[in-house]
Design a protein around this nucleic acid. Structure first.
Lengths: 221, 221
DNA sequence: TACATAATTTAGATTAATCTAAAAATATTT
DNA sequence: AAATATTTTTAGATTAATCTAAATTATGTA
């Protein structure tokens, strides 16, 4: 592992996310928007990262991670997600409180600490949002996403996606207090019409129709 | 609390330590040596910190912490020591492995995290080196330092000081593998001559004379 | 007290990361 | 394919933290 600054690590992480794991090239503007910085700053940084051989960059052609850069990005993501588990499980943080702190903790440099932290947490495979935690080699497996109607009574999980992304549907979800990241527990299933009773964020229990439950994908915990 | 950079926090911490808690004025050179930087850099930073009202500084007259600066320094020290306890107690670090990591962790900004961490660790009063952990208000009490000959059999602690600091004595201590920070367990006391059998760093058991045991101060754990 | 020595500050540069505004390259549209 | 719009890069400045070398102030000693 090379010695990268906090800032450089953040750029690599952004490129990783924007390129969906290194699959597609990322534009200067996309990075600038994502990081809330300016395109000119991104160009400068891409030159620097290219000279360190962590990205492949050609003027005007976009950028992507090199193998080396991908590894570095995955280490940071691994750390971020392990710290999130720590914050929720051990420090009793709520989901919406973890992000800012994990953004800081992910840059702590100590391979030993991460090893021990992982052990301490019982080798978790997913973070509190349902995102997979890469192992030391960067390998991970996405958690299966299942529609609510296929979930057993009593099971819970996090909303990770929707099948129907039409405006009326999204508005309906908003109305019932459901969003990507919401915690859902299936309380009951009505055989008669296939509707479900779900508990949202441990707060409100509501009933949703079969049609709705088929279109909300959750990642079980 | 003001928003201070990582660097500014380190300067405040150094001044706190060098001034023994704000008691005496600190010279530019002392800070430069302590931080392994140059005097000119210190002067620049002192101007900056003075403008933020965290230090009292007058050209050529040395510097000390203002009340505000003292509070900030104590927050950082509190965080450092809590993290050290975490690393040793929960992450199974050895004493000599904690410092560098705690230096990084002490700058994490999250009052909630520190509150929860303290609770999680059971409100420890001292860090693994025997140094006191300030509470939220910055209050702390130094741990009593007792000579080895006054310690009960079976008790253990950390070497925190010596009464005799003559060169021959220090050389003797070095020879038997004892140093500030060493872990000592009193295994036996011989009534006949007042000598003690002590276990050093859980490694070697040796016998020391009454005279020696009177001159080594430990902080019990 | 005056001189030499040591400590401290100033002046001017440097590096990393950022920015704005202008120039250049690429994409899109007619 | 030419004209226009968008994206990206370059040029030049800025800020925080640092440095070296020179100038200034303080201290110690004869």
């Amino acid at each position: 592992m090379i010695n990268l600054s906090y800032t450089e690590e953040n750029y690599l992480k952004s490129i990783y996310h924007l390129s969906k794991g290194g699959k597609l090239d990322v534009s200067t503007n996309a990075i600038a928007d994502y990081q809330k910085t300016k395109a000119a700053s991104v160009t400068d940084m891409m030159k620097k990262l290219a000279s360190k051989n962590v990205v492949d960059y050609q003027k005007y052609k976009g950028v992507n991670l090199s193998e080396k850069g991908k590894k570095e990005a995955l280490v940071v993501i691994r750390k971020h997600r392990l710290w999130e588990v720590f914050l929720v499980e051990k420090m009793k943080f709520n989901w919406d409180e973890v992000h800012d702190v994990a953004e800081q903790l992910e840059h702590i440099k100590s391979p030993l600490l991460i090893k021990r932290l992982e052990e301490f947490l019982g080798y978790p495979k997913y973070d509190p949002h349902g995102d997979p935690i890469p192992d030391e080699n960067g390998a991970y497996k996405a958690k299966p996403q299942v529609p609510i109607n296929e979930v057993e009574i009593g099971q819970e999980g996090i909303v990770v996606a929707v099948k129907d992304s039409s405006s009326p549907f999204l508005q309906y979800l908003d109305k019932i207090g459901t969003y990507i990241g919401a915690k859902i527990k299936v309380m009951d299933k009505v055989n008669f019409d296939g509707s479900n009773e779900i508990l949202i964020d441990n707060k409100r229990t509501i009933s949703i129709s079969k049609q709705v439950s088929e279109n909300i994908l959750i990642s079980e915990s």
